[in-house]
C-alpha cells in the first residue's frame, strides 16, 4: 500500500507501510533511484527515510498533480522490475580494545567471547535504511540480535568521529565527534564525512555496509592515507542474495 500526500506547497511525501522493515525500505530506496533516473522536471531533491520518500519540488516548474501522476506511474512500472543488484561499501574497523572501550562489556552481556562478538558484527552486511541525525550518519538494519545491548545510562560527553557502536538492536558509526550513549566496540580510520572532499559522503540510503576487521597497524596506515584523501573504500556490487560478485 502506497500513498502520496502533499507536504507543504513545494514538497510531497510518498508513504509506505508504517514499520521498520527491510523490504519496505528497499522499495523506498528503489523508488528514490528511479525518480533520480527519470530526471522529472522540477524535482529538486529527494529524502529517503525508513518508510517514506520526501520529494522537494519547484512549484514554478511543476505541480503536485503532475508529480503525483509521474511518481504513480514509476511506482507501478517498477513493481514489475525490482532492483536486483546491491552496492556494498566495505568499512575497515579496528576492534582493538584501545578503541572498543565497551567491547568486553558487550561480550559479557551477550555471554560470548570478544572474538565471537567481532565475528558476528563483521560477518554480515547491513542495509542503510536512511541517513540523518548527523551529516553522514547511517541508520543500519540487520544486526544480529544476540550482540544487542542497551545504551549507556549516562551518555558520554564526547565520542570520537569514526567510533563504531551498538545501541539496542542497532549498530552505527559516528561521522563527527558527538556526545552519545552507544556502546563503542571499535573505530574506523575512514573519514565518513568531509565537507572539503569532492564526494563529502561515502554512501547513500539503500547501500549496504560490510565491516572489515583490521589491525592497529592497518588502522594507522589507512588513517594516514585518509588524511590525504588517498584512501578509497572498497565498493562491491553483488546480486541480492549473494549471487555473483564483481568489483566495481
Amino acid at each position: 500500500m502506497v500513498d502520496i500526500y502533499p507536504a507543504g506547497d513545494q514538497a510531497l511525501r510518498v508513504v509506505f507501510e508504517n514499520k521498520i522493515d527491510r523490504d519496505i525500505n528497499a522499495r523506498v530506496n528503489n523508488l528514490d533511484k528511479r525518480i533520480q533516473q527519470h530526471e522529472l522536471p522540477g524535482v529538486k531533491e529527494t529524502i529517503p527515510a525508513f518508510r517514506t520518500l520526501t520529494v522537494i519540488y519547484d512549484a514554478l516548474a511543476t505541480d503536485y498533480l503532475t508529480l503525483n501522476e509521474q511518481i504513480g506511474s514509476i511506482l507501478s512500472d517498477w513493481e514489475q522490475t525490482p532492483e536486483k543488484k546491491k552496492r556494498i561499501i566495505e568499512i575497515p574497523v579496528c576492534y582493538d580494545e584501545h578503541f572498543g572501550i565497551d567491547l568486553i562489556d558487550v561480550a559479557k552481556h551477550s555471554g560470548m567471547t570478544v572474538q565471537e562478538v567481532i565475528q558476528l558484527h563483521s560477518g554480515r552486511d547491513y542495509t542503510i535504511y536512511m541517513l540523518g541525525f548527523l551529516p553522514g550518519f547511517a541508520y543500519l538494519g540487520g544486526m544480529d540480535p544476540s550482540i544487542s545491548m542497551p545504551r549507556l545510562r549516562t551518555p558520554r560527553s564526547k565520542i570520537n568521529a569514526g567510533a563504531v557502536g551498538i545501541a539496542g538492536n542497532q549498530t552505527g558509526m559516528y561521522p563527527l565527534d558527538s556526545p552519545g550513549g552507544w556502546r563503542i566496540i571499535g573505530a574506523t580510520p575512514v573519514k565518513l564525512f568531509d565537507a572539503e572532499r569532492a564526494s563529502p559522503f561515502l554512501f547513500e540510503a539503500g547501500d549496504h555496509i560490510r565491516f572489515k576487521p583490521i589491525t592497529m597497524e592497518d588502522y594507522n596506515d589507512i588513517r594516514a592515507l585518509s588524511a590525504e584523501n588517498d584512501y578509497q573504500c572498497q565498493v562491491l556490487v553483488e546480486e541480492d542474495g549473494y549471487g555473483n560478485t564483481d568489483n566495481e
Binding site: 514499520k19 529524502i47 520526501t54
Partner: peptide, 11 residues
Amino acid sequence: DSLSEGTVLGD
C-alpha cells in the same frame, strides 16, 4: 513514536 522522515522548510 513515529518513524523519522525527511523534514520540509516550514513544517
